[in-house]
């Protein structure tokens, strides 16, 4: 028994090492002067501990401004996705209407529209209506990108809410809108918070749209801002600062997921597997 236990821990330990190994180097080098990365043989452990990368990056790029851009875009898009997605899910699941299957199936098809297909026409459209470099240039496409999964998960969740509860609500004279606001939304908070976290992470990390639709350097999101830090030549790149910034903008997401991982797993698998 002991032997089997040991094997499993060894297996999982190796797997955890595999997941964390590359990140370990990021963390290590973020506390070293930039030259440390060029040491030969490479450094496995801290030698010259310094915070200068973490403080220096705020001088090299307007990281606070980029973070603000990311927060505005990701929060607004998450809010809109949840609002429109849960409304649509309520319409689809509780008030059965003609064409609902068509609607749900087209949602899945739209959900997998490749970004590489959508990027040219959206760029063209936003440049025509002067929306490039506007927060909406990211909020709108992100919302559309998040709607399929959100609607799908919420519809599955709503369908499991007991019908009796809704009948009781209508006997009590609650309107459809009242039922949505006072019963459906409070009851579905666990599902809503799961999708909210998943959507927020996706929007926060998105790279291609943010790179293309926000050409103005003040409007960059954190992911784009970090990827565009550069020195005059590759070997002058402030690598230490780049990774310090990269770690700083990822830590909030990691904390979020550590706290909510149980919920995320059940929410995701409900959407993907039960369909």
């Amino acid at each position: 028994m002991m032997n089997r236990n040991f094997k499993i821990y060894l297996g999982v330990g190796l797997m955890a090492l595999y997941c964390l190994f590359p990140i370990y180097f990021l963390v290590l080098y973020s506390f070293e002067p930039s030259e440390a990365a060029y040491h030969s043989p490479p450094v496995f452990y801290p030698i010259a501990f310094t915070f200068s990368n973490y403080t220096g990056v705020f001088k090299s790029i307007p990281l606070a401004r980029y973070a603000l851009n990311s927060i505005i875009v990701a929060t607004s898009a998450t809010f809109l996705t949840l609002l429109f997605g849960s409304m649509a899910a309520y319409g689809v699941s509780v008030l059965k209407f003609r064409g609902r299957d068509l609607f749900l199936n087209s949602l899945i098809l739209l959900g997998f529209f490749p970004a590489a297909t959508m990027i040219f026409p959206i760029y063209k459209m936003f440049s025509d209506i002067n929306l490039l470099n506007n927060y909406l240039a990211l909020i709108l496409p992100y919302t559309v990108g998040g709607l399929p999964l959100t609607t799908w998960v919420m519809a599955t969740y709503f369908e499991n809410i007991p019908k009796d509860l809704l009948d009781a609500a209508s006997v009590d004279g609650l309107s459809i809108g009242g039922t949505y606001a006072k019963i459906m939304i409070p009851l579905s908070l666990p599902a809503l918070s799961t999708v909210a976290i998943l959507d927020f992470i996706a929007f926060w990390n998105e790279f291609i749209y943010a790179l293309t639709f926000m050409p103005d350097s003040n409007m960059r999101t954190v992911t784009v801002g970090i990827s565009l830090i550069s020195g005059r030549f590759t070997y002058q790149y402030p690598w230490g600062q780049i990774i310090a910034a990269a770690l700083m903008v990822t830590i909030p997401l990691v904390i979020m997921v550590f706290v909510a991982q149980e919920k995320i797993i059940s929410g995701l698998t409900a959407g993907a597997v039960k369909g």
């Binding site: 992470i201 990390n205 992911t223 990822t250 990691v254 997921v257």
Partner: peptide, 14 residues
């Protein structure tokens, strides 16, 4: 499980 999720949470840039 949370450790395994880290590569997936981190953005492609990171």
């Amino acid at each position: 499980r949370a450790i395994f999720l880290i590569p997936w949470i981190a953005s492609s840039v990171i």
